[in-house]
């Protein structure tokens, strides 16, 4: 049981870690000061959540590692994040579309985890859900605003949703780890979150005057770690470089 639980916690933690890192790349170069500050808040929340999930993962694993060990000393194949969150930022529109597509799933997931049979998981989920409620509010508003803005912003947002849609399906796929979690009442069936998600996406895209892509083909391999995209390796190269170059140092 502890191995699947460890896997599951890494999935939650790695999503937060990788997306938090991506969002932090905007610091100092966002389109307007208020957005710069807001994006940093999202990244800070996600980094905080990373510490909680990976901290618990390390505890469950019981091999003396901690959250930093997991974040900075695993290689690509050990990462368990969704492919969606490792996608590069692209323009601001694509960043916000990725955020919205993730937030919608993330909030539903956390709300379900608040009923987890595992108290520690339920507690982390409760704290995170408060933060993510706000993330979703902001990302939906921005997607709507830009979709329904100028011709150019509309075009860019449509291209963003078209580009990212193939990474949406992975969030609702399940495997043995998920089965194990469901069996112990720890986590929900991923497929059970799909209907609510589809309604949310339909509402927001409609308000944004954007079209939902018709093809629901889904890339997979992120949460299982079987096949990440090429982008993750480059991100880890940067993120882990100091720790790996000076393995005997403390920071």
């Amino acid at each position: 049981m502890s191995q699947p639980l460890f896997e599951y916690l890494c999935r939650m933690g790695d999503n937060a870690l990788v997306l938090g890192h991506r969002v932090s790349e905007w610091c100092g170069v966002a389109p307007v000061l208020e957005e710069d500050i807001a994006l940093a808040n999202v990244a800070l929340d996600l980094i905080g959540q990373t510490q909680l999930w990976l901290g618990l993962a390390a505890e469950v694993e019981g091999k003396g590692r901690d959250a930093d060990n997991l974040a900075f000393h695993r290689d690509v194949w050990d990462f368990r994040n969704l492919l969606l969150v490792e996608q590069p930022n692209g323009d601001f529109g694509r960043t916000m579309m990725r955020q919205f597509l993730f937030d919608g799933w993330h909030l539903a997931q956390l709300q379900a985890l608040m009923d987890s049979s595992n108290d520690q998981i339920a507690a982390i989920a409760e704290k995170s859900a408060k933060e993510v409620t706000y993330h979703l509010e902001r990302s939906s508003d921005t997607v709507i605003g830009l979709g329904d803005g100028t011709e150019e912003s509309h075009r860019r947002m449509q291209s963003a949703v078209d580009r990212l849609w193939p990474y949406v399906g992975e969030m609702f796929l399940s495997d043995d780890v998920d089965q194990e979690m469901m069996a112990h009442g720890i986590a929900p069936d991923p497929a059970s979150l799909r209907a609510g998600y589809d309604t949310l996406v339909a509402d927001v895209l409609a308000a944004a005057t954007l079209k939902r892509p018709e093809d629901d083909f889904a890339h997979k391999g992120g949460k299982t770690g079987v096949r990440h995209t090429e982008h993750l390796g480059h991100m880890l190269t940067q993120m882990q470089w100091l720790q790996r170059s000076y393995p005997d140092a403390t920071w």
Binding site: N41, K130, R138, D141, G145
Partner: peptide
Amino acid sequence: SLHAADAEMAIKNARDVYTRRNE
């Protein structure tokens, strides 16, 4: 003070800029 396109965005920006989102 801050800048925002409309009232709703002004509230959200205020939350991010001036409260760091405390409940």
